[in-house]
């Protein structure tokens, strides 16, 4: 089961960031002399880089397509500033997503520090 809208939302950003951090985490584990399977750490990071590259490429291609082929037909429909951009993916959108994700993760940390919890059922 994948909750919500797989691939998009802040969930998509969360997993992208988590994947990109895996090599760094591997380095830290290695410094602590803990076992690291590099293929397992680098694989998701490579996929994440592929996703980011793919998103950038599709944004650029869509912008080129819309501005050159379909642009004139839609100039009268609102003021689609995206038509004049080199990439449909806007930095502001990305920053808004990262900001929202940061807020949610910060809220989890606040809850972790403030919410009273039943005594742990652990440990074996």
């Amino acid at each position: 089961m994948t909750v919500g809208i797989p691939g998009t939302g802040i969930g998509g950003l969360f997993y992208l960031a988590s994947a990109l951090l895996l090599p760094l985490r591997g380095l830290l584990r290695r410094r602590r002399r803990e076992p690291v399977v590099w293929s397992r750490a680098l694989g998701p990071a490579a996929i994440a880089l592929g996703v980011l590259g793919g998103l950038w490429l599709s944004g650029a291609m869509l912008a080129a397509l819309l501005s050159r082929v379909l642009g004139p037909a839609f100039r009268g429909v609102g003021h689609a500033s995206a038509l004049h951009a080199s990439n449909l993916l806007r930095l502001a959108t990305l920053l808004a997503g990262i900001g929202t994700l940061s807020l949610v993760l910060a809220a989890v940390q606040v809850a972790r520090l403030t919410v009273t919890r039943p005594a742990p059922a652990r440990r074996r």
Binding site: V3, F14, V115
Partner: peptide, 24 residues
Amino acid sequence: RPLLDVPFLRSAVAVACWDAVIAS
């Protein structure tokens, strides 16, 4: 509540909840 003590999972579940509501 007890999930708040489980690293990573607590964040993954919170993000999933957000997406299930807000992103939807």
